[in-house]
Deep mutational scan, measured.
Amino acid sequence: MATGGRRGAAAAPLLVAVAALLLGAAGHLYPGEVCPGMDIRNNLTRLHELENCSVIEGHLQILLMFKTRPEDFRDLSFPKLIMITDYLLLFRVYGLESLKDLFPNLTVIRGSRLFFNYALVIFEMVHLKELGLYNLMNITRGSVRIEKNNELCYLATIDWSRILDSVEDNYIVLNKDDNEECGDICPGTAKGKTNCPATVINGQFVERCWTHSHCQKVCPTICKSHGCTAEGLCCHSECLGNCSQPDDPTKCVACRNFYLDGRCVETCPPPYYHFQDWRCVNFSFCQDLHHKCKNSRRQGCHQYVIHNNKCIPECPSGYTMNSSNLLCTPCLGPCPKVCHLLEGEKTIDSVTSAQELRGCTVINGSLIINIRGGNNLAAELEANLGLIEEISGYLKIRRSYALVSLSFFRKLRLIRGETLEIGNYSFYALDNQNLRQLWDWSKHNLTITQGKLFFHYNPKLCLSEIHKMEEVSGTKGRQERNDIALKTNGDQASCENELLKFSYIRTSFDKI
C-alpha cells in the first residue's frame, strides 16, 4: 500500500482533458527560462521544448504516446526543470519506465491550478516501474492521483506527508504495488545497510526511497516546507523545498512566496507586481503582455491589467481597466465587458449561442446573426445582446428569417469595421425574408467608422429604411451602385405612401 494514499474509496472516473512563447529569463536562482504550460502528445517531438525550461508557468501534460519505446527515452533528460506552477499529468506514455532521468531536479509542483483537485496525476502508464522524482520536495496545493499503472512499484516507500501538507485526498490505487509483488529495495538494503531515512506512518517504520538508488530526502521537522541542505541544516524561511546553503534567500532552489532578481522575498516591493503567484514583474512586463494579447485571437491570451499590486489576466467583477495605466478602477454604474472572439468572429444561430455573449459591452471581433427560429426570440436576444455598444469588426445579418427588427441591439452605437466582410463591408444584410426595420432612427444613433453597407434580398425592408441608415451611420456616399439592390429590397412591402385627393359631386333626387 502506498504510504499516505487512500484505498478502496469510491472515486469519480478520471477524465483526461485534452506555445513556446518565453516569458522571460528567471535569473540567477533558476538555471534556465520560464516556459508556458505545455500539452505534449502523440510523439516526442515537442518534448524537446523543455530543454531550457527551469519553470513551467502553467501545467505540463505528457500523454497518448503509443509508439514510443524505452530506448526512445534513454537520452532524454531535462535537468534544468525545477518547478511547475500548476500540475504534472502523465497518461498512456508507452515505453517510459521512470522519471528519474527525465526530470531529475523537479523540486516543486505548486498546484496553482489543479487537474480535478490533483497536482500530480500518473494514470495508465503501462510501462512505468517507478516514479523516480527523487528531488520532489513540495506539492504546495492539491493532491496526488496514481492509478492503474500495472508495473509501478516504489510507492509504499514514499512518505507523501513530507511532500504535501495533507495526504487525506491522495488516491493511489490499482498499481502493481497493490499486489505486494514489488519487493522494493532501498539503497544499501541488499548489503544489509540502512542508507535512507525511515519514518513512521500508520504504525509502520519504513525506509523512504524513490528507487533502488535514490533515497527520499527527509528534512528535520523544524525546517517545515522550506527544505534543508545535504547536511540537514534548514533553508531560509522564504525558500521552498530545498537550498544549497542554509538561511540564505539567494540560495533557495525555489521560493515559498515570490522570486525577485535572484532572491526569494515575502512580497513584491514597489515598483514590482505579483505575477502568477510566484514571481515579481515590473510595469513594462505587464504592459507588454497586455499589448501582445490586445489584437491576438490565441486562446488563453489575456490583456493583463494591474489590481491590488498584482498583474492579473482581467479586472475583477465591479472594476474596469483604465487604459492609460492598466489599473483596475471601480465602475460607475454597470461595468464594461470586452469579449474577445477566439477566431475573430462568432455566429449567433440560437439563443444558446447568444447567451455566451451575455453582459458583453464591447465585441472584439465580428458578429454573424443567422437565426431561423426560436421561442420568445426578441426578448431572449435583447437579454443577451442588448448591452453590446461596440463591435470592432463587422455585423452580418444573414438568412435570419425569424427577425423582424434589429432593435434587440438596443445599445449598439459603434461598428468600427477594423475587419470587413469580403474585404469591403462593415454591415452586411443578406436574404432576411421578414426583416422590416433596422432601428427606430428617431431614437437610435449608430456610427460606422469604416467599410460599406450591403443589402440584398431583404424583400420587406424598404429602401427608405436603408437610406436612413446611410445618413445616420455616416456611410452615405461610400456605397457603390450594386451594394444596395434596388429590386430585391422592399419588393414585397408597401414602401411608397402617396396622399390621394378626392373630389365629389353631391346629387339628390331633384338636383344634379
Results as ranks from 00 to 15, higher is better:
103 F>R: 01
294 K>T: 06
111 G>V: 00
165 D>Y: 14
295 N>H: 13
253 V>P: 01
307 H>V: 05
199 T>Q: 11
176 K>A: 05
37 G>L: 06
335 C>I: 04
176 K>W: 12
149 N>F: 02
104 P>R: 01
310 K>V: 05
105 N>R: 08
225 S>T: 10
73 F>A: 12
43 N>I: 04
310 K>D: 14
320 T>E: 08
93 V>P: 00
109 I>T: 00
308 N>F: 11
51 E>H: 13
216 Q>L: 12
119 A>V: 03
224 K>W: 03
290 H>I: 05
262 G>T: 11
106 L>D: 00
181 E>H: 02
308 N>A: 07
88 L>Q: 00
290 H>W: 11
74 R>H: 15
201 I>E: 12
85 T>N: 03
282 N>R: 15
157 T>R: 13
49 E>D: 09
285 F>M: 08
227 G>P: 12
76 L>A: 14
109 I>N: 00
299 Q>C: 07
298 R>S: 12
245 Q>W: 09
323 S>L: 11
210 W>M: 13
189 T>F: 12
56 I>G: 00
107 T>A: 07
107 T>G: 02
252 C>M: 03
170 N>F: 09
333 G>K: 02
130 E>G: 05
286 C>R: 02
32 G>Q: 15
177 D>V: 05
190 A>H: 12
251 K>P: 00
102 L>R: 00
49 E>N: 08
80 K>G: 10
253 V>L: 15
275 F>W: 10
143 S>A: 11
202 N>S: 12
121 V>E: 00
153 C>I: 01
205 F>R: 02
136 L>Q: 05
198 A>T: 10
329 T>A: 07
28 H>L: 10
180 E>A: 09
180 E>D: 04
336 P>D: 08
77 S>N: 13
237 S>K: 05
191 K>L: 06
269 P>H: 14
314 E>T: 13
138 N>A: 09
30 Y>K: 01
111 G>S: 01
185 I>Y: 07
315 C>L: 04
188 G>F: 08
95 G>W: 04
209 C>S: 03
255 C>G: 00
282 N>S: 15
164 L>D: 12
42 N>Q: 10
251 K>C: 07
219 C>Y: 04
220 P>M: 03
128 L>F: 13
85 T>D: 01
174 L>T: 13
121 V>G: 02
222 I>W: 15
116 F>W: 14
79 P>S: 06
183 G>Q: 05
158 I>C: 03
195 N>F: 10
175 N>S: 11
139 I>Q: 01
35 C>M: 00
85 T>S: 06
279 R>A: 09
124 E>R: 07
43 N>A: 06
129 K>R: 11
318 G>T: 07
98 S>V: 01
76 L>V: 09
226 H>F: 14
314 E>Q: 04
93 V>S: 01
288 D>F: 06
194 T>S: 11
308 N>G: 05
146 I>T: 01
28 H>Q: 08
151 E>I: 02
109 I>L: 07
98 S>I: 02
238 E>L: 04
61 Q>L: 08
178 D>F: 09
196 C>R: 14
174 L>N: 11
211 T>M: 03
143 S>C: 05
299 Q>N: 13
226 H>Q: 06
141 R>N: 15
303 Q>K: 04
190 A>C: 06
110 R>I: 10
62 I>P: 00
233 L>Y: 06
276 Q>H: 02
109 I>R: 00
195 N>P: 08
255 C>E: 00
255 C>A: 01
78 F>L: 06
136 L>H: 01
104 P>V: 02
30 Y>V: 05
186 C>E: 04
220 P>T: 11
273 Y>E: 01
89 L>M: 15
210 W>A: 06
200 V>W: 04
197 P>M: 10
146 I>Y: 02
326 L>S: 05
318 G>R: 03
287 Q>A: 15
256 R>W: 02
295 N>W: 05
226 H>G: 12
211 T>L: 13
117 N>L: 06
171 Y>M: 14
242 N>Y: 11
68 T>W: 13
272 Y>G: 01
88 L>T: 00
90 L>W: 03
190 A>S: 09
263 R>S: 07
82 I>F: 11
111 G>R: 00
267 T>F: 15
298 R>N: 06
277 D>F: 04
227 G>E: 02
224 K>R: 05
177 D>C: 10
137 M>C: 12
329 T>G: 12
174 L>I: 13
195 N>W: 12
164 L>K: 12
52 N>G: 10
74 R>P: 01
106 L>H: 02
191 K>C: 02
79 P>E: 08
261 D>I: 04
225 S>R: 09
336 P>F: 03
239 C>W: 00
164 L>Q: 04
64 L>V: 09
195 N>H: 10
36 P>A: 11
147 E>S: 13
228 C>N: 05
83 M>V: 05
66 F>A: 07
67 K>S: 05
142 G>Q: 01
110 R>Q: 12
214 H>F: 14
69 R>V: 07
155 L>K: 08
134 Y>A: 05
302 H>M: 05
245 Q>S: 08
237 S>G: 08
115 F>Y: 10
244 S>W: 10
129 K>A: 11
226 H>S: 05
50 L>I: 07
32 G>V: 12
39 D>P: 01
165 D>R: 12
305 V>T: 06
129 K>M: 10
125 M>K: 00
278 W>C: 02
140 T>Q: 09
284 S>G: 12
164 L>G: 15
88 L>V: 07
140 T>F: 07
75 D>A: 04
124 E>V: 02
323 S>N: 02
178 D>H: 14
248 D>S: 06
155 L>Q: 12
310 K>C: 06
179 N>G: 12
109 I>W: 00
90 L>H: 00
182 C>K: 14
38 M>P: 01
75 D>T: 07
236 H>Y: 03
182 C>V: 02
151 E>V: 14
247 D>T: 03
305 V>C: 08
44 L>P: 09
218 V>N: 09
151 E>F: 04
242 N>E: 11
328 C>W: 02
64 L>Y: 11
140 T>R: 09
270 P>M: 04
265 V>L: 09
161 S>T: 13
120 L>N: 01
312 I>F: 01
273 Y>H: 09
188 G>R: 05
246 P>V: 07
206 V>L: 13
306 I>D: 04
74 R>W: 04
28 H>D: 10
295 N>Q: 08
330 P>E: 10
308 N>V: 11
60 L>R: 00
239 C>Y: 00
224 K>G: 11
102 L>Q: 01
244 S>Q: 08
303 Q>N: 08
139 I>L: 07
306 I>V: 11
68 T>F: 07
249 P>K: 03
247 D>V: 08
97 E>A: 09
311 C>Y: 03
215 C>V: 11
145 R>I: 05
202 N>P: 09
274 H>G: 15
201 I>P: 15
199 T>L: 11
137 M>N: 11
